[in-house]
Design a protein around this nucleic acid. Sequence first.
DNA 1: CCGTCACTTGACACCGTGTCAATTGACAGG
DNA 2: CCTGTCAATTGACACGGTGTCAAGTGACGG
Lengths: 199, 199
Amino acid sequence: MSSENPETRTRILDAALALLGSGRGSAARMADIARQAGISRQAVYLHFSTRAELLIAATLYLDEVKGIDDRLAASRAAETGAERLDALIDAWGNYIPEIYGIARALLAMKDTDEAAAAAWDGRMQAVREGCAACIDMLAIDGVLSPDLPPQRATDLLWTMLSVRNWEQLTVDCRWPQRTYIETTKRLARDTFVVTGTAA
Amino acid sequence: MSSENPETRTRILDAALALLGSGRGSAARMADIARQAGISRQAVYLHFSTRAELLIAATLYLDEVKGIDDRLAASRAAETGAERLDALIDAWGNYIPEIYGIARALLAMKDTDEAAAAAWDGRMQAVREGCAACIDMLAIDGVLSPDLPPQRATDLLWTMLSVRNWEQLTVDCRWPQRTYIETTKRLARDTFVVTGTAA
DNA sequence: CCGTCACTTGACACCGTGTCAATTGACAGG
DNA sequence: CCTGTCAATTGACACGGTGTCAAGTGACGG
């Protein structure tokens, strides 16, 4: 299970990501991935005992390749809560299109596959923590909208930033990515940040 | 295809809705539905040539039973845009939990089945029209937030009201239905309605 | 008494996932 | 040079779910 040629393993992962990324995700059956990797279908099972396992490995691999951790780190460096909110939306919102293909595949398995569900939920939990950190920072800054308890605010922000919402706005409604980012920022700011009680 | 006993047909639809509604939607294979209806699996195919066709018929049937049209009509009667927005969120937001089971099933087929995708998109298009009507009314009232073009506002409201968002907030985040409704109303009002330019 | 018609029973094809067993071919070491 | 090992190949198969087909049953009406 773990002694196989690691080069072949990454070829499989690259193949899966290529198929899931470029257009039709429906063409990502085990046989398709194998063909794309220039390998027999059974060889794939030598490396990943299950389709779910393969897809999960592919998302981890993609995270590594795209360096999402570094990107999110930038948002953690923000000085104020409001800046951090913007940085989070930039980082995550621009990451979504890059993972969209595999996210769809994983999401589709969620109903039927235990492991896939756990993997997806885990990833989303990480995003949620980013949201919670923003909300906390806004609260500390004293600018969090007073009629939203922090927990609720976190839930709401997390929901705003869901892959499904990105999908609906950019794919279904044809919003350019830039519009999605800017509008989401505005919406989040207006919703969570109480601006100048000044007078 | 259309000369069969209509009573059996509705028994099938009731069976499907029962299975999809009560808990595990995974238990809604053709054989399960047939068993639930007290009928042979093949008899189901006598009435619905395809699983997708059955599910689509079930949603139409459910709409009829639940009288969604009447409920939405109420929202159309509102005098102001803001009232209409509230009424729409009440009507649709409280309808979602009733259709959630079948919505999940239909959504799951969307990727693989042409007809299911079309049916779902059609239904969502109807919701979108409700959203558009609200936004138009707000614009006519002169209270639509000026930095949101009506088209964008419609897209955004429509996205806010998506089944997926309801799912994430109530199922994943455990919000009570009431909280979902109230929070969504507040969010929509704050986002779209410019309140008193008065001074 | 005979048709018709809704439904039943049981077999089967197709597809995608996952398993198994036998084989190939390369490379490494005694 | 022969032998083991090991990744990968080939081809067969089981399983579950959808959809098809053909023959049979039983009730009801003319």
